[in-house]
Write a protein that binds this DNA or RNA. Structure first.
Length: 495
DNA sequence: AAAAAAC
């Protein structure tokens, strides 16, 4: 079995690796690092969670350890689709370049130019950036990319989804064509294939097949749900979500709740909070400091429920969560796999529960086709979905501004919009006392019987803090993806 | 149809 020490990495890098508790490279690392160190282009086809990030940071640090950066001319460039992902890569450099003198700058939107400019001015070895902000700096004449020796494109297929490909092509054209390119994508869509044919030269192609399929350690289920009336469906659906969450009891240590739309992320987070659950929203319309704070809180365990848009579906190195709830059926079947892949990581057990309303049945069918097996239907927890229609109108009221004047009880909960108070009431309170229901709807059953609830998975809810270095873990190892995801585009079409 | 990312 290959060890990091077999890989010709700088001794100082090896020291940092070993201090981080790693000994054996993951398949993508073992495959990519030797080629990268030889100066070859690399085409890595791998999911997040395969140790992909270290497969480029480790050789980069080794190669950049020699030489010095010049002002405004970064020696290497890493492009990421989202700000969080870029920040994560930067952290990875910090970890492994601990004993190497390397300067880096993180160029992402949502924060001030000033500090970024200062760093660039001084000269950086590594530039980690999202495309928009990078080009912004370039257009201001603050940045020269002609000194880039190594360029990394991370999560290229997601860049494609987000319409970044023209930017990427432009950035490619600003760097010397003698550069070394390390290119990573989870899939090889035709457009991605075209880019790699254009900008990579004779790349070593490393394709990582996932060992396990979705099933093994992630228990999946879907609750088919129809509102008692069309206009009541949203609030009843939120109630169902609460019941599903509470039905999990102690087995739920932390969870991500995915919604398809940003407004719903806000509404659902607000609704959960209103009922005493420890929840906070994250999506791209929130300012960067809030996003960072929320994510940090979720990582360190002080936040239990993260309500998220697909900003968090891919790539984020969130600690293994015990549960994923799909409040909405994702409309791209592949997103389902990415979302539920946030649980059951590193060999632990996870549970993924989805709510499907009639309108989403087509999308559900697409998902089942993609994962090649039916998702078991679950019964709603007893007492759910039948009663308590008018529930938390106030939560909706924040966004439905037009109807706001009509609703007499809307004023109570509007104030705290998205600010995640750092108050002490972080842990979830019992719902009876927490639900602020002074109105007549309060007559609805407060504590439904739970016998029919989906059985809580026995998940070994160990301390999350140790999640990174357990067992023989290698960076990011161990979240399980269905086998199809590792197939190339052609192979998948054939299925 | 929506999310993400630039000011």
């Amino acid at each position: 079995m290959t060890k990091f020490t077999d890989l010709n990495l700088d001794p100082k890098v090896l020291k940092a690796i070993s201090e981080a508790g790693y000994e054996h490279p993951t398949p993508i690392q073992a495959g990519a690092i030797p080629h990268a160190l030889q100066g070859k282009d690399v085409l890595g086809i791998a999911q997040t969670g395969t140790g992909k990030t270290a497969s480029f940071t480790l050789p980069m640090i080794t190669m950049l350890a020699k030489g010095r950066a010049r002002a405004r001319m970064p020696r290497s460039l890493v492009l990421c689709p989202t700000r969080e992902l870029a920040a994560q890569v930067a952290e990875n450099f910090d970890t492994y370049a601990k004993y190497v003198k390397l300067t880096k700058a993180l160029l992402i939107g949502g924060v001030s130019f000033k500090e970024q400019d200062m760093l660039i001015d001084r000269g950086v070895d590594v530039l980690i950036a999202t495309p928009g902000r990078l080009l912004d700096h370039f257009e201001r004449g603050k940045l020269l990319l002609t000194g880039v020796q190594i360029m990394v494109v991370d999560e290229a297929d997601r860049m494609l989804d987000m319409g970044f490909i023209p930017d990427i092509e432009r950035i490619f054209s600003l760097t010397p064509f003698t550069r070394q390119t390390l290119f990573f994508s989870a899939t090889m869509a035709p457009e991605i294939e075209r880019i790699t044919n254009t900008f990579l030269s004779a790349p070593a192609r490393i394709e990582v097949a996932r060992q396990a399929t979705t099933g093994e350690n992630i228990t999946q289920g879907v609750v088919m749900f129809k509102g008692s009336r069309k206009d009541r469906e949203p609030s009843e659906k939120r109630r169902l979500l609460r019941d599903l969450i509470e039905a999990e009891g102690e087995a739920l240590t932390n969870a991500i709740v995915f919604c398809n739309r940003k407004v719903d992320v806000d509404i659902v987070a607000k609704s959960l909070k209103k009922y005493g659950l420890d929840a906070a929203p994250i999506h791209g319309d929130l300012d960067q400091s809030t996003r960072t704070r929320t994510l940090d809180g979720f990582r360190d365990g002080s936040l239990k429920l993260l309500v998220a848009s697909d900003v968090a579906a891919r790539g984020l190195d969130v600690p293994s969560v015990s549960h994923v709830f799909n409040f909405d059926v994702p409309s791209h079947a592949e997103d389902y796999v990415h979302r539920i892949g946030r649980t059951g990581r590193a060999g632990r057990n996870g549970k993924a529960v989805m709510i499907c309303i009639p309108r989403d049945e087509k999308n559900l069918a697409d998902i089942e086709k993609l994962v090649e097996k039916p998702i078991p239907r679950l019964d709603a927890p007893a007492g759910s979905a039948t009663a308590d229609p008018a529930e938390d109108i106030a939560a909706e009221d924040t966004t439905a501004s037009s109807s706001r004047s009509r609703s007499s009880r809307s004023s109570s909960s509007r104030s705290s919009s998205s600010s995640r108070s750092s108050s002490s009431s972080r842990s979830s309170a019992p719902r009876e006392s927490a639900a602020p229901r002074e109105t007549e709807e309060a007559a609805a059953p407060a504590a439904p019987a739970r016998e029919e609830a989906p059985k809580p998975e026995r998940s070994p809810s160990r301390g999350r803090s140790s999640s990174r270095g357990s067992d023989n873990a290698t960076p990011g190892m161990g979240d399980h993806m269905p086998s199809f995801i590792a197939l190339s585009f052609e192979e998948r079409k054939a299925v």
